[in-house]
Design a protein around this nucleic acid. Structure first.
Length: 559
RNA sequence: CGGGAUGUGGCUCAGCCUGGUUAGAGCGCCGCGUUUGGGACGCGGAGGCCGCCGGUUCGAAUCCGGCCAUCCCGACCA
């Protein structure tokens, strides 16, 4: 294609409202444009990349026997009311002209289950269906370009099985396909256990791509045998240096001390030998005291999972009423409600709040001085040891680019998707759902493959395989040669972007660096004099001068 | 939804604090010419309800109030 005829509106400067590298570069390179917060147009270049990702996903889905179909964005509210998802705040609700309620689907479990009601016999199972469709979500806060948006294309696949074994098989089939997809896309990705969120169901796995920006924190072991989302990651913290022990809790005055650091300093103890009390309130109004080591942070999500309810931090007023002390001096002793302590506090003596403002207790010991329920409720920290091998845990910001779930009967029960087994017994279908957002894959690819000059696309995702830069004005010999070479490369199977615009060389080079095609071929009279052209590999920016007749071989066939 | 910031030609921004002729710069765009291996140069041009509404004032891009939009942090989140 000739650049002179394409709509590739590149920007010389970074857009003022972009921070994430992918956001900046995709906008600057003319791949995407924002229409409103979280609503994006894919321009021709961006859509080429998007569709390359789609094709890879499609090929791997088809290879698993998953069948492509197409379901509408607009769905009747009734389906969502039946599954209890109608009240999700992110659900975009609309009405038709007769004011009948509809929903712009944020995902298609309801609709696909509606169709799954036609699977009546065990003979019809298993089945796997998928489609690419626009998803709509009324996000409270769209952000970082393509990372969190209000409307986006997603590949969502659904499996239908008669029993747990079948579901397990389907789940693993999809999981393996996901690894192949991201491998083909040239992405570094980790599959980690994840929360199921608003999807319902049991097991789920997240596919996290490390990147310079993103909403997830990926925890990995340096030895490569452990990876998890920070939300559920388990780390082994260092052992505390315990001070002298006490036969009974020893009250010390700690006036004005509200931070662990100040407390540890005042008492001359290791912060890891102190405890931190975090009162939280469950949805039923019950107050629970979360207890973690002084140098740790309470993970509210973990705590919420253990107590089986969403929780919020208690207000200062609630804390004073319950404990009779200011928040900085609260502890487990004398508290009549449930104490949920982190495993790290099971053994040893710790400093704890005395439930008396301005006082703490030294030598507080579980079992002797207070009772508690133990669980992993601390947030893993960088530098913690790996729970598997003891190696060091590292943290990376990551983008969630895929998520697979075992849904079980969460949708089939309320929507009545049932089948008859061999015994004539009616049973609900067991479902799984499997999503990938090509837009996020695109953003992750940029996050992982760029430098100060622009994007360096993985071969499989690049908008064009080769960017041929013709030096000189239209009609010049170099330009004609460039056109001929571009044609030859195309005949050889490569997709080619020919920069035939009447622009200065520097501008063309800068544009090519920004757009990021894997290979750049510079055709100018300087090298043409001895029958050669310059071939630059974008990743690493290594340039080599090659004879024109070797060009096709040098550039290679497309991925 | 809480906290913070920003809204001025297509883009990036200055001007606002301390109100006062036709509102500026760089880049981009159009025309002519010179140029052509890392974002050239000269000359001439086009393009702005200064986010919106209201208030203060003789006078508002500038001060005050309300609203809207966008970005960032948090809450939230397939």
């Amino acid at each position: 294609m000739r650049a002179s005829q394409l709509f590739i509106p590149t920007l010389r400067e970074d857009p003022g409202d972009a921070e994430a590298a992918s956001h900046r570069l995709l906008v600057r390179g003319g791949f995407v444009r924002q229409v409103a917060a979280g609503l994006w147009t894919f321009l021709p270049l961006g859509w080429r990349v998007h569709e390359k990702i789609v094709q890879i996903v499609r090929a791997e889905m088809d290879a698993t026997g998953c069948q492509e179909m197409f379901m509408p964005v607009v769905t009747p509210a009734e389906l969502w009311q039946r599954t209890g998802r109608y009240d999700i705040p992110e659900l975009w609700k609309v009405q038709d002209r007769l004011e009948r309620p509809f929903v712009l689907a944020m995902t298609h479990e309801e609709t696909v289950t509606f169709h799954a009601r036609e699977l009546r016999s065990y003979r019809d199972l298993p089945q796997m269906l998928y489609h690419f469709q626009t998803k709509v979500r009324d996000e409270p806060r769209p952000r970082a370009g393509l990372l969190r948006v209000r409307e986006f294309v997603m590949k969502d696949a659904y499996s239908f099985d008669r029993d747990e074994e079948g579901l397990e098989r389907s789940f693993r089939l999809q999981e393996a396909a996901y690894h192949r997809i991201f491998e083909r896309c040239g992405l570094e990705v980790y599959a980690v256990q994840a929360e199921s969120g608003m999807m319902g169901g049991s097991e789920s796995a997240d596919f996290l791509a490390p990147s310079g920006s993103g909403e997830n924190t990926l925890v990995t072991c340096e030895k490569g045998d452990y990876s998890a989302d920070l939300e559920i990651a388990h780390g082994v913290p260092r052992a505390p240096e315990f001070p002298e022990s006490f036969d009974a809790p020893d009250a010390v005055e700690t006036p004005g001390v509200t931070t662990i650091e100040a407390l540890a300093e005042l008492l001359g103890v290791d912060t890891a030998a102190t405890s931190k009390a975090m009162p939280v309130v469950k949805t039923d109004g019950t107050l629970v005291l979360g207890l973690v080591r002084g140098d740790d942070r309470l993970d509210e999500a973990k705590l919420a999972a253990v107590v089986g309810s969403a929780v919020r931090p208690a207000t200062e007023e609630e804390i004073r009423n319950t404990f009779g002390a200011d928040p900085g001096s609260v502890g487990p002793l004398g508290f009549s409600g449930e104490v949920l302590a982190d495993e790290t506090l099971r053994n040893g003596q710790f400093v704890a709040g005395a439930n008396r403002t301005g006082w703490h207790l030294r030598g507080v010991e579980h079992g002797r001085d207070f009772e508690a329920r133990f669980a992993d409720i601390r947030q893993a920290k960088e530098g913690d040891a790996c729970p598997r091998c003891g190696g060091r845990l590292g943290f990376q910001t990551a983008i969630e680019i895929g998520h697979i779930f075992k849904l079980g009967t969460f949708y089939s029960e309320p929507l009545g998707a049932k089948f008859l087994d061999e015994e004539g017994q009616e049973r609900p279908i067991l479902m799984g759902s499997y999503g990938i957002g090509p837009g996020r894959v695109m953003a992750a690819a940029v996050e992982q493959n760029h430098d100060e000059h622009g994007i360096a696309w993985p071969r499989a995702l690049a908008p064009y395989d080769v960017h041929v830069v013709a030096i000189g004005a239209a009609g010049a010999e170099a330009v004609e040669t460039a056109e001929r070479l571009a044609g030859e490369l195309e005949e050889n199977g490569a997709s080619v972007l020919l920069d035939d615009r009447d622009q200065r060389p520097g501008e063309k080079f800068a544009g090519a660096d920004l757009i990021g095609c894997p290979t750049r071929v510079t055709v100018g009279k300087k090298t043409l004099e001895d029958g050669r052209v310059d071939v630059l590999v974008r990743a690493g920016r290594v340039e080599e001068r090659v004879p024109v007749e070797d060009l096709a071989g040098q550039v290679g066939s497309p991925a």
